[in-house]
Nucleic acid binder design. Sequence first.
DNA 1: TCGGAAATCAAGACCC
DNA 2: GGGTCTTGATTTCCGA
Lengths: 88, 88, 88, 88
Amino acid sequence: MLSDADRVTQMGDNTRAKLKGYIERIERLEADKTEIAADIREVYAEIKTFGFDTKIVKKVIAVRKVEASERAEQEALLEMYLNAVGLD
Amino acid sequence: MLSDADRVTQMGDNTRAKLKGYIERIERLEADKTEIAADIREVYAEIKTFGFDTKIVKKVIAVRKVEASERAEQEALLEMYLNAVGLD
Amino acid sequence: MLSDADRVTQMGDNTRAKLKGYIERIERLEADKTEIAADIREVYAEIKTFGFDTKIVKKVIAVRKVEASERAEQEALLEMYLNAVGLD
Amino acid sequence: MLSDADRVTQMGDNTRAKLKGYIERIERLEADKTEIAADIREVYAEIKTFGFDTKIVKKVIAVRKVEASERAEQEALLEMYLNAVGLD
DNA sequence: TCGGAAATCAAGACCC
DNA sequence: GGGTCTTGATTTCCGA
């Protein structure tokens, strides 16, 4: 069986190009993610400038997040019930 | 500076005994954990025997869990508000 | 045949109570499991404070675990042999 | 001086709306970030399907990342030197 | 029983 | 420097 290293050294140009494409795509996505994180930090900075405690704002957002996830969980549960009854 | 291997070969009996104690304690705790996991699996098996879909039961438990965490988050937020107002 | 949801909507109080009992029992077991995991983390923290590399301690425990299972394996094998020759 | 809570209870509709806007903006940004993370996971899944070890791909990306930051570091250093000798 | 999917956990980065 | 967030690895769990 081929090891990964064997695959790399023996693979054709098409395969190599494909792998390269994957890697570059991931790097672009990660760059986007980093940029968004920077945007978020910026907004918090603005909020602080505005005179609010960012810690509380963060907590408010956290609460809203678990509320949302609870709603999602309940919907999933309902879905399962309906599915079990054959009403979906 | 001493490497870990140095420590092991050079340490006195007391130190060695202490380390041995830690290891045995962890092993006991892990045995307990494994046993509990087995108990949980058993309960699910019983539930299935009983004729219920374990997937739904799991989801019910998940919903209850996020409900609990939401309650905890809201309390933490309230705490922060009160703290900010100086009423805590 | 009844679907799971039929069972839920049509089941009597006894059944419902039984299911509730299962759920609460699982929740208690999971709480126990979480607590034990916390205990284990604590012991590792203590070990680290003590000056040892927790990674190595983990390795030691892992090795002892496979050794234990190997021993069990061999004992089972021996048991089989003895049984086969009528010496058990 | 007003505490944060005072601000919340006493603030006018404009202020409240502004804060709400900030929160919603952050939530949108975080949703985007989550989505990108999902995309990345998807790409890795595709890579795995393709027959490569994702762990190695991750390593490659990590290496390229530090190489990029090292390059940036060196360029900054070069810049400083050139600046110091008045050649920039 | 194997493989993927998910939870758990410690380590590192990063911001305050 | 303290604390939170993120990431990467390990382990765990379930279905096929």
